[in-house]
Design a protein around this nucleic acid. Structure first.
Length: 463
RNA sequence: UCCCCUGUAGCUCAAUCGGUAGAGCGAGCGGCUGUUAACCGCUAGGUUCAAGGUUCGAGUCCUUGCGGGGGAGCCA
């Protein structure tokens, strides 16, 4: 007999049907008359299946005491309408098999609430909890939604390299990749000769696929990347990971307005997908994790984003009367407190800030005619802050070269990037979206380390 | 990297002014029950993160180290 997923049994199972289910025990409750209630969860849904096992089920008596929280079982039984409250149907077992026990004295997951800090220390078992099951399912819906969004719009999914030798992508500290024997080198020499290294030069893990995505956007049209990204920053916050997943669409013939439109449509699409496809998990997050998350996600899904030029945002902040720890001044980057004020208090919805001062933005963003600003945009959402950063790219060769020198970069190092402007240059735009930040936004989870199965942060890569 | 908080039973936490280390949950045993965060009783469970210092006496105060959390910066 084929296994039926518990999610399917709960949603569509009818009294009288016989099914086989497999999974892990959440709780067992014994009754005097000799039968037991087992709540079984197989990860397919938030809710588990209640199974009534009578004392005369073959083999049950021998394994009865071994059916503890965490034990794995196979059960066959007939569904019936549940006389008790809390579930539509339940199963009456006719066959039971114990796959594996989970010794109650040593199994770390108990039938109680655990702190997220503790669960991080047992990252191999935390997917078995309600919260991490829900996060994993929502992560999956978001992943599928990302591909669906772009695929139905004719975007091509491209793969950019994880290992890169372009030394200065300009988006933060990089992890070095090497096959050199560092212990030996430390003993016998003081200078490192990268010619001896695997690639014959210094190599690192990518901090962004953007430059490579531009190559394809300027060849095959709209495209996007969705892959791991690495930043060796010593960041210890609830919003940063050393290894995270990033989505980077890149579109030829898009100006900044087209770019903003796409970013807004994209985020709203993902919010709707989650609301529609994971209502139980979303309700759980709202009940148990963060009681405003449903409202927030719905609001983002439906409300048009406010578009505010940087200069106007500065004016709003200076005339707000709000006391900020850091001064608001044109030409300075906005601090977290400023962004939060704008999106949480002033506009009370997602906002897109654009046209930032060129001095605080990277070289590849297109310069405006005012000589002071660039066509950059940041999408800010309540609670998380920046979730998307993007821009229209500078497509004019001479302007781009000047900007590189202004940023102390050597244009020769980017010869291939400049070739895109040298031969058949086109206006184009793109943005980057941190996948775990979207997960964090829709789940209401406070710490991004709980939004990825195996978080990597400074001093932490145990699993 | 900086600032603040924190480290006590398997887990979540308490311990007054520096004076014999406790509770809830979990676990074991027993009872009760179509139960569902089940409930009731009993029992076991501790090198108080580590090293050093002050003191008659340190979980508590001081120093250093390590771990964890929050905030900031960097960003997605």
């Amino acid at each position: 007999m084929k296994r039926t997923r518990i999610a399917h049994v709960l949603a569509e199972g009818q009294p009288g049907e016989t099914h086989q289910v497999c999974g892990w025990v959440r709780t067992r409750r014994d009754s005097k008359q000799g039968f037991s209630f087992i709540e079984l969860n197989d990860g397919s849904s938030m809710q588990g299946l209640q199974i009534v096992v009578d004392a005369d089920v073959p083999g049950f008596e021998e394994i009865h005491k071994l059916i503890t929280t965490g034990a794995s079982l196979r059960l066959v039984g007939k569904l019936q309408e549940s006389p008790g409250k809390g579930q539509r149907v339940e199963m009456v077992a006719s066959e039971i098999e114990l796959y594996g026990t989970a010794d109650a004295d040593t199994y770390p997951l108990q039938k109680k609430r655990h702190s997220f800090e503790f669960l991080r220390e047992i990252a191999h078992l935390r997917p078995r909890t309600n919260t991490f099951g829900a996060i994993t399912r929502v992560r999956n819906i978001l992943s599928a939604g990302i591909h669906e969004f772009f695929q139905t719009r004719g975007f091509q999914y491209i793969q950019t390299p994880v290992i890169t030798t372009s030394d200065c992508e300009g988006a933060g500290e990089m992890f070095q990749v090497t096959t050199l024997n560092l212990e030996r080198i430390a003993q016998i020499q003081t200078e490192i000769d990268f010619n001896q290294d695997f690639f014959g030069r210094k190599a690192s893990l990518t901090v962004s696929g953007q430059l490579e995505a531009e190559i394809f956007a300027c060849a095959i049209g709209e495209c996007y990347t969705f892959g791991p990204t690495f930043r060796a920053e010593n960041s210890n916050t609830t919003r940063h990971l050393a290894e995270f997943w990033m989505i980077e669409p890149e579109m030829p013939f898009y100006d900044l307005n087209d770019n903003m439109e796409l970013a807004e449509e994209f985020i709203q699409f993902l919010m709707k997908a989650v609301l529609e496809k994971a209502p139980d998990d979303m309700q759980f997050f709202n009940d148990r994790i963060e009681n405003t998350v449903l409202e927030t996600v719905k609001q983002i899904a439906e409300t048009p984003f406010e578009r505010v030029p940087y200069t106007e945002a500065i004016e709003i902040l200076t005339s707000s009367g709000e006391k900020f720890e850091y001064p608001v001044k044109w030409g300075n980057d906005l601090q977290s407190e400023h962004e939060r004020f704008l999106t949480e208090k002033h506009f009370k919805k997602p906002i897109i800030l654009f046209d930032y001062p060129r001095t605080i933005k990277p070289f590849y963003m297109r310069c405006n005619d005012d000589g002071k600003t660039v066509r950059a945009m940041d999408v800010l959402v309540p609670r998380i802050g920046e979730i998307i950063g993007g821009s229209q790219r500078e497509e004019r060769l001479d302007v781009l070269e000047n900007r590189m020198r202004e940023c102390d970069l050597n244009p020769d190092d980017y010869w291939w990037y400049l070739d895109l402007r040298r031969f058949g240059t086109v206006p184009h735009s793109g943005f980057g979206l941190g996948f775990e930040r979207i997960v964090q936004l829709v789940t209401g989870m406070q710490n991004i380390r709980d939004c990825i199965p195996f978080p990597r942060t400074p001093k932490n890569a145990a699993f």
